[in-house]
Write a protein that binds this DNA or RNA. Sequence first.
DNA 1: CTGTTAGCGCCTTCAA
DNA 2: TTGAAGGCGCTAACAG
Lengths: 331, 331
Amino acid sequence: MRKVTIQEVAEAAGVSKSTMSRYLNQNYSHMSVSTRQRIEKTVKALAYRPSRRAQSLKTKRSRLIGIMIADISNVYVSLLLKGITNYLKQYDYQTLIMESGNSVEQERQQLDQMLDQSVEGIILQPNSRLSATYQFIADAEVPLVLVDRETAPFRWDTIETDNYQATSRLSAQVHQSAEAYTVGLVVSEDVHAISTREQRLAGFINGVAPLPVQTVELDASNAAFTQKLQTLLAANEHPLVFANNGKVLAVVLKTLQALSLSVPRDVGVAGYDDWNWAGLVGPGISTVEQHPDKIGYLAGEMLMKLVQPHEKKPKPAIHTLPASVKFRQSI
Amino acid sequence: MRKVTIQEVAEAAGVSKSTMSRYLNQNYSHMSVSTRQRIEKTVKALAYRPSRRAQSLKTKRSRLIGIMIADISNVYVSLLLKGITNYLKQYDYQTLIMESGNSVEQERQQLDQMLDQSVEGIILQPNSRLSATYQFIADAEVPLVLVDRETAPFRWDTIETDNYQATSRLSAQVHQSAEAYTVGLVVSEDVHAISTREQRLAGFINGVAPLPVQTVELDASNAAFTQKLQTLLAANEHPLVFANNGKVLAVVLKTLQALSLSVPRDVGVAGYDDWNWAGLVGPGISTVEQHPDKIGYLAGEMLMKLVQPHEKKPKPAIHTLPASVKFRQSI
DNA sequence: CTGTTAGCGCCTTCAA
DNA sequence: TTGAAGGCGCTAACAG
């Protein structure tokens, strides 16, 4: 049962390809009712469905939108995707999802492939902080919306969390705490690679001020963190550990468990939670909860505005969404 | 900067479209080195990239494979996707990802759209248990691989976890426990809708036998579960609660926390864990950990075998992957 | 070694 | 109200 073409249905219905095409595009204006019904029946009988490829070759509309994220196994990202598809489902668009694996080169390759597939628009969680990196997308005249992270200088619609504010509010809780912390320890992946991480670090420093703040970078292993922590404890410090994202928070908690450290007696803990599980762990971990689904939904909305032919295009802007701060017993 | 076509590069390089096409498809066999280099330079200068749509219209190869899952925000699914893309990245294929929202009708619509986009193959987490539901895909001669769940009668390659075995092994731990459980309580979404859930229920009953087993269905709220649990406790039962998937486990744990019940003193808990967080919660929750990334990877591999033109097609089979059972203190 | 020609499946004037 | 013809960007014989 090979795919049937417009030619074949047309013949079966006893009309020309042009008439078929008119039917498909709902140009019923000047078509006799009888022809229309005849075509309708034939289409149903043959289970005919037009080929998008052929259509789009002609019309330049692929009905494809590209979504480029850093890591698809990330919970934040999966909720983001949920939000995007949730908005897009009312439209007749399909999503081409690719992941960059946090590599700028791979990202570029994948984006090129997206363009090759003639996507009509792109939602991007950028790996690079430079707008110039993505200029080629604008050159190809493909609408672009950034999510989660921003690039400089400002150029495209960007939807992100209010990281500075939220982190600041959460970490300021340290001043209400019965525990007397002597140092803040921010655990993060490469801080300066991504705008978001920098914003959170800055927010933390602001929130706990005048407490001194140290940072430790988390790579493949947790060795650096473990060592840093033990050094601090050996020096009789009382650290407040801050995990800069959900993945890091998981590592931090597992490390503390492995070291049999008590929270918040030995160390305080706070951080970003993507899983919504932090409330169940230990005494309840104080966290920032983002709303990636909302970010995705809004990104979908923005992109559709840019893609739809007849909408007036709004000026690009940065949209900052508030995050929820959950105060629990871990500080 | 509109997209440049093969025609334009050909003219710029002073060759015909055919020669350009040969270059693109690496048919260098009978092409003078000078032409080749000239083309190479022009292509680079104009930043030319061929249009996949046009190519595929001719060649019937879209380089697109469709992935249809039930719920994209599910952690299991995001790891599954990771596994698939992880395998596919060595090939030049893009993924069209859609979600069915656990609805058979929506699933059908989306699958139709996938076929409209001329995907070369489909990986499907089916919502229906009937193979007949998906016969139209076979009719369209599009290779199909099922993941996570199976349909009957057997017809396509299927990659899934060994749910019965794993659940059985985990729940058999009840016989080693110091706690004297009097009843098993399986919490699940609609058990008979999905093969996987039935397998787990059966495995649980087998593992805890001869302990009596009750079930409770989880819908939007946790009310039914809460009530059932309180009834059992009021009757002085000592229940072992089993959460049939990761989502349900989260609800169960949050409910127990809300009721201030102690684990395992008041109730024992075990279940399926998608997050890998269960070890951090309470006394450590005994769980089955699946390996969705491996399922995805294998699914990608199977599909590529079916899609690649020159491979000999293996007979379809059901591939059952073992899960890990983590014994912790919650039983 | 390279160009000419004829489509792939559909849409879109232009005529009839 | 309908059909014929041309073309979207590319590939693949077939010539030369």
